[in-house]
Simulated scan of single mutants.
Amino acid sequence: MRVELTVTAKGQITLRQAVLDHLGIKPGDHVDVELLPDGRVELRPAGTRPKLARLRGMLRRPGQTAVTLQEMQEAIEQGRGGSDEG
């Protein structure tokens, strides 16, 4: 769905009812606005951003053992010892 909105002289816009319905926003609700680097904006109902804790375990694969921070650090340090060709 594409909706065109008009900007007022005060630099404000009014969201059409179809947009509010699509977002599930009701009078008195708050809206999060994220300014994206490519000049776009993203609107969403406030409080609906994914929690960082929900990402825990996302990259886990069956049968793969967890790597400790110490093991990660050692792997990084070993990588520095490689040749600097290129």
Rank of each mutant, 00 (worst) to 15 (best):
T48D: 05
D84S: 12
P27L: 06
T14W: 08
D21E: 15
R80C: 04
D38R: 07
A53Y: 02
M72Q: 12
K10W: 01
P50I: 13
K51W: 09
G24D: 10
R61K: 13
G24A: 05
Q12W: 02
M72N: 08
R16M: 04
D38L: 06
H22M: 12
T14Q: 10
A18E: 15
A66M: 05
R16N: 06
V33E: 04
P50F: 13
V7L: 12
G82P: 00
H30D: 14
P45V: 10
L55S: 10
Q78C: 01
G24H: 03
R61D: 07
I25D: 07
L43F: 15
G63F: 01
A66F: 09
L23I: 10
E42A: 14
L69G: 02
Q73R: 13
E74W: 01
A18C: 04
A46R: 15
R16E: 13
L69T: 06
L52M: 10
P62T: 02
M72W: 12
Q70G: 03
M58A: 13
V67R: 15
Q17M: 01
P62W: 01
D29C: 05
Q78S: 09
V3R: 13
G28M: 09
V7G: 00
L36V: 01
R56Q: 05
V41A: 14
V31M: 14
L36R: 15
P27W: 10
E4W: 03
G24N: 11
G11C: 02
A46V: 03
L52G: 04
D38S: 05
L35F: 13
A46D: 09
A66P: 10
E85T: 11
E74G: 01
R54F: 03
G57H: 03
K51G: 08
D38V: 00
S83C: 09
A75D: 08
L55N: 05
M58T: 13
L15M: 11
I76H: 07
R2L: 06
